[in-house]
C-alpha cells in the first residue's frame, strides 16, 4: 500500500529465507496434488505481482513431482477492489493475462500474503467474470491472520502470528533480487 510505504518502518524479524520458502512451496505443491488427486484440469492463477512469481514456482514444483506442465495465469484485481475512489489517487491497473479458459477448471489462486481477505474476495469476483471454474482453491505463502471476511486458505506455506500494526513483506528473487519474508514494525510504535 502506498501510504504504508511512506511510514518509517524497521525490520522486526526475518521469518523465512530462500531455503524455507522453497521447502514450503514444495510441500504446498505436494498438498495440491494430493487434494486434487493429481493434476488433471489443474491451473494456477497468481495475483499480481508476487503471487504470479509464486504460481510459476509452484508450477515448476508440480513439474518435478508429476512431470506435467500446469498452466499459469496472472490476475490483476485492481478494478475489483472495494476501496477504489475512496482514498487518494487510483492505484495502477496492471494486465490480467490468463491465456486459457477457466471454464470447468480446478483453479488454485496463489498469493503471497493472506491478511484481511479483501484481496481474495476481489480475486474471486474477478475470476468469476472470466468463466465458471469447477473448483477454486487458495494457496498463500504466508497467513498472518486478522481476517475481515469469511475466507480461509486451502494451502499455507507458513502461519505467522502478527499484530495489526505490523507489516509482512514477502521479497522474491524475481521482483526484489532476494528470497525472504520479514515482519516490519512501525518505528513510532516502540
Amino acid at each position: 500500500m502506498p501510504s504504508e510505504a511512506a511510514m518509517q518502518v524497521h525490520e522486526k524479524a526475518q521469518i523465512m529465507d530462500a531455503t524455507t520458502i522453497q521447502r514450503a512451496l514444495t510441500r504446498v505443491a505436494h498438498e495440491i496434488v494430493e487434494k486434487n488427486k493429481g493434476t488433471a484440469n489443474l491451473v494456477l492463477i497468481g495475483l499480481r505481482s508476487r503471487g504470479v512469481d509464486l504460481a510459476r514456482r509452484l508450477s515448476q514444483c508440480l513439474k518435478q513431482i508429476e512431470g506435467v506442465d500446469v498452466p499459469v495465469g496472472a490476475l490483476d484485481i485492481t478494478l475489483y477492489r472495494d476501496d477504489l475512489g475512496k482514498a487518494g489517487r487510483q492505484p495502477a491497473v496492471r494486465k490480467t493475462e490468463i491465456p486459457f479458459s477457466v471454464e470447468k477448471k480446478r483453479v488454485v489462486l496463489v498469493d503471497d500474503v493472506l491478511y484481511t481477505g479483501r484481496t481474495t474476495r476481489a480475486a474471486l469476483d474477478g475470476l468469476m467474470d472470466l468463466g465458471r471454474p469447477a473448483v477454486i482453491q487458495l494457496a498463500v505463502l504466508v497467513d498472518r491472520g486478522h481476517r475481515e471476511l469469511p475466507i480461509r486458505a486451502d494451502y499455507v506455506g507458513k502461519n505467522i502470528p502478527t499484530a495489526k500494526t505490523e507489516q509482512v513483506q514477502v521479497m522474491l528473487q524475481e521482483e526484489d533480487g532476494v528470497d525472504r519474508v520479514v515482519i516490519l514494525k512501525n518505528t513510532d510504535d516502540q
Binding site: 485492481t78 478494478l79 495502477a92 491497473v93 494486465k95 469476483d125 474477478g126 467474470d129
Partner: peptide, 27 residues
C-alpha cells in the same frame, strides 16, 4: 505514458465474454 499503460491493461477486458468490471460502480 501512464494513460497508455492503463489503457493497455484495460484492453484485455474487451476480449472477455463478459465485458464488465465493477471499478466505476456508482459513478
Amino acid at each position: 505514458f501512464l494513460i497508455l499503460e492503463t489503457a493497455d491493461s484495460m484492453k484485455e477486458i474487451a476480449s472477455r465474454e463478459i465485458k464488465k468490471v465493477p471499478a466505476l460502480r456508482g459513478k
